[in-house]
Amino acid sequence: MLDDIASLSLQAAIGGLATRQRVTADNIANVETPGFTARTVEFESSLAKALAGGDPAQARVGISPSDAQAGINGNNVSLDTEIVTATKTGLQQQLLTGALTSKYGLISTVLKG
């Protein structure tokens, strides 16, 4: 019951979002560092593929450099993109952790009778 498709998908996504939040914070911290290349995190497509194959635990989190254009000092961090990403990631984390909590809550309700 704790390893059904929905729970596994939520756990995989929550892990991916945590990585995305760290990478975004790192990008924002380095917004003025010369030569710094921003990084992006991708797990949604890996999760969708794993779900199509029936096992969400196969999803992988991938970190890759961003191909945005660099400015004069070689830094390619786009602050508004990072802030949008940080905002969305925060909301998604709230939604998905709430989802996992309510799933566990259903089990707890039944156990309590």
Partner: peptide
């Protein structure tokens, strides 16, 4: 609710309140 949770996890859900409403209904019925 589980199906919508999977959609939310893989980023395909357009409207987050769809999931929270379904989860609330499932919790109340349980």
């Amino acid at each position: 609710a589980d199906g919508l949770a999977v959609q939310a996890a893989s980023g395909q859900l357009t409207d987050p309140s769809q999931y929270t409403i379904a989860a609330t209904q499932a919790a109340l019925m349980t």
